[in-house]
């Protein structure tokens, strides 16, 4: 955490997606930084490398990984870690992030972010993997909470305690996805305020936000909807409890006209500045 405390406040950013490329340059004053999906720039072809250079010359960038698989008992894929390290070296970000989950099992990529059981053993696995990452990449790593469709009966604690223990064991900051928190709270009928009471909110460095998507009886994190008031409420509460260094709108599909994106960024900025 000590290095994270020295990180500068970035403000309100946007998850970079290719269809946004022109609009982000037309609306530069509205975007304080960009979060890039790290995996898109590993083994980059010439076009992606030029895109990375263009973004890096014009914006603060935060690499966000999908596949470190910090919850894999088999450990971190060294080749993947090496590529991540090269990207971080090139971008020189204030921090970088990945998820508290596993994406690989038995050497196979399972293609999605799979949740971990909330056990002491899982905490130990994550802590060991994070230590390995920290040995290779000095830049602070922050960890993101994910959504889940099932909760493991084997869990020994609730998610808030699980996250708290991981923060305490690793010294990492949190990337709190307020949409994921809200979705989980609705799908599993818990109070997100009590969740916030249970985590060290001073460790929250950055948040993700976007609208939730209803799929039958459940909410899912499709990243395709406008941020709804309920999620702004979670965002507001987080801002009241801690001084965020960054907030990122994470829109992946059903792209609206860009002025809608800009309006959401403005709203986030207002909340961050007034809470």
């Amino acid at each position: 955490m000590s290095t994270l405390l020295q990180s500068k406040t970035l403000g309100v950013g946007l998850g970079f997606r290719e269809p946004f490329r022109s609009d982000i340059f037309l609306n530069r004053t509205e975007i304080d930084f960009l979060e890039i999906t790290a995996d898109h720039y590993f083994d980059a072809n010439e076009a992606k490398q030029k895109e990375l250079e263009l973004l890096n010359e014009n914006f603060e960038l935060i690499p966000h990984g999908l596949d470190l698989s910090l919850g894999s008992a088999e450990g971190i894929d060294e080749e993947y870690l090496e590529k991540f390290a090269e990207l971080v070296e090139f971008v020189q970000p204030e921090w970088f992030s990945d998820h508290i989950c596993f994406t690989r099992a038995g050497g196979t990529n399972i293609g999605h972010l799979a949740p971990l059981p909330f056990t002491r053993e899982a905490v130990a696995v994550v802590a060991a993997n994070v230590k390995k990452v920290q040995r290779v990449i000095e830049t602070p790593l922050i960890l993101e909470n994910i959504t889940y469709l099932v909760r493991f009966p084997s869990s020994e604690m609730d998610e808030a305690e699980f996250l708290t223990r991981i923060v305490s064991e690793t010294g990492c900051g949190l990337l709190l996805d307020v949409t994921n928190l809200y979705i989980n709270s609705q799908n599993f009928a818990f109070d997100w305020r009590r969740f916030l009471d249970g985590i060290p909110t001073e460790s929250v460095v950055q948040v993700h936000f976007v609208g939730s998507h209803r799929n039958g009886k459940r909410l899912i994190d499709a990243h395709s909807d406008k941020t709804e008031e309920e999620i702004w409420e979670v965002f507001r509460e987080v801002c009241k409890r801690t001084e965020l260094k960054g907030a990122v709108l994470e829109r992946d599909g059903n792209f609206p006209p860009f002025d809608e994106i800009v309006n959401e960024l403005r709203q986030a900025r207002t909340i961050m500045q007034t809470n």
Partner: peptide
Amino acid sequence: LERLQLAFGELKVR
């Protein structure tokens, strides 16, 4: 100029 054309390529198409 190359950077500008990369940045606004999508805009041109749209």
